[in-house]
């Protein structure tokens, strides 16, 4: 069957898609909570204040949560999924757990006004041996996928366009 094409999220999702607790995969006071945050920037380096970022990640042990409750969080269940709109300075911020695994990363989806179809990327934790994707990229592109870690904060800026444009991914089954 022919796939349904995407269309831009447009400028007017703010009253609809964000919800209370959307970006708190764990409460910020959780002993293992980390802040995962960054700026979304356009090709001129200008902040994008009308982007929506979604994350999907394994838990600290590297397991996929597969639990309901992301929209009405109970404060105890780690669902692995969250959503955050960027603020006026183009910043998004999540409270979450460090993902587990051999080359752990947070899967990221980017939506924005001006972006006709969503983008996928990965925010890797620093300090692990590179996996297949990272190894296949030249250094200047690879580093766009690795978050900066400082204490309990992971910083991951998303550059939609330009010299240090983030690597955006496709997962289709064609093997080119």
């Amino acid at each position: 069957m022919i796939e349904t094409p995407g269309q831009t999220i447009g400028p007017f999702f703010g009253f609809a898609l964000p919800y209370a607790g959307d970006s708190q995969l764990v409460p910020p006071g959780h002993p293992d909570a980390v802040q995962f945050s960054g700026l979304v920037l356009d090709g001129d380096g200008v902040a994008v204040p009308d982007a929506l970022i979604e994350i999907w990640q394994p838990d600290a042990e590297g397991s996929v949560a597969a639990r309901a409750g992301s929209l009405r969080r109970d404060g105890f269940t780690f669902t692995g999924w969250g959503r955050a709109a960027t603020d006026n300075s183009g910043r998004y911020s999540f409270s979450t757990l460090r993902p587990g695994g051999e080359a752990p990363f947070i899967a990221v989806t980017v939506f924005a006004r001006g972006l006709l179809h969503r983008l996928f990327t990965r925010a890797y934790l620093p300090g692990y041996p590179p996996d297949g994707l990272l190894s296949s990229l030249p250094e200047n592109r690879r580093r766009t996928l690795v978050a900066l870690e400082e204490g309990a904060s992971l910083t991951f800026d998303i550059k939609l366009q330009g010299a240090d444009e983030t690597v955006f991914l496709r997962f289709d089954n064609s093997s080119d």
Partner: peptide, 15 residues
Amino acid sequence: SSAKRCPTNDLYRTD
């Protein structure tokens, strides 16, 4: 609005 917000590199295929 897409002018400054569209990536200029091709999407990178990965498994």
